[in-house]
Amino acid sequence: MKHIISPTDLTVSELNELLELSEEIITAPKRFAQVCQGKKLATLFYEPSTRTRLSFEAAMLNLGGSILGFSSADSSSAAKGESVADTIRVISSYADICAIRHPKEGAPLVASHFSSIPVINAGDGGHNHPTQTFTDLLTIKNLKGRLNNLCVGFCGDLKFGRTVHSLIHALTRYEGIKFVLISPEELRIPNYIREELIAANIPFEEVRSLDDVIAGLDILYMTRVQKERFFNEEDYIRLKDIYILDHKKMANANKDMLVLHPLPRVNEIAPEVDDDPRAVYFKQAEFGVYVRMALIMKLLEVEKDA
């Protein structure tokens, strides 16, 4: 039995298999409509998240399975003080697989230590969000045709943005990757990631201006400055609208550059960009369902043509 707590819990070859299965699902989703019949997914969401929870639930329903769970800590036994360890022991007897989101970093790992069913980390604080990373990789692979030899720009909150940290980690396993890290001084990537990039000899540059670098990018990964990660509201207000991607900026970008965003978007991408064919963030959200379908199938070890 395998758990997915961090994006690197899958080897590169396992990840390639996952992405290949996802692409098979994209091509013929109806073929997979019954493969998880009789199986149940528990969604244990200790903090609100509409998108990720519904994406997991849609994925299981698309596979013919059923879903159960809760969508906030208030409506679970956590409100009565139950530990993650006890909750997962009980849920293990109700469901075949579970996805857990928790505001505390490392909670899904704790769950995996006590679980008798596969645990998928659906986001733990500012730490990991592996299925978002798999979604991002699928989007790049499917729309760019490759995961190597890319110049990838990350823009916005690179300090607290867990999707950024996870995707950087995942992409460093492919050849010919270069990163351009665009952020204000206060929201630069954490030291440990910088040290890892230097140690692994991965080329990267840290800049403040998006305009100066957009022309050289194959991928632009925009992020939201997240209010919930700030202890100080003043800092949030000062930094929240520091980057706004609009038509003017897009005019300087390559004609085949892709704009990704983990969503929800606030002001960092002007709505006028939505109609640009290079803006693929809604497609990316759709791909999130396919990659979660593939992941559920892999972890439950169900056959393609069950």
């Binding site: 530990s83 360890a85 490392g106 604080g125 730490h127």
Partner: peptide
Amino acid sequence: RNPRCITTVEPGI
């Protein structure tokens, strides 16, 4: 010492 870490709240960890 990370206040966001699960070890700050999970009993018996």
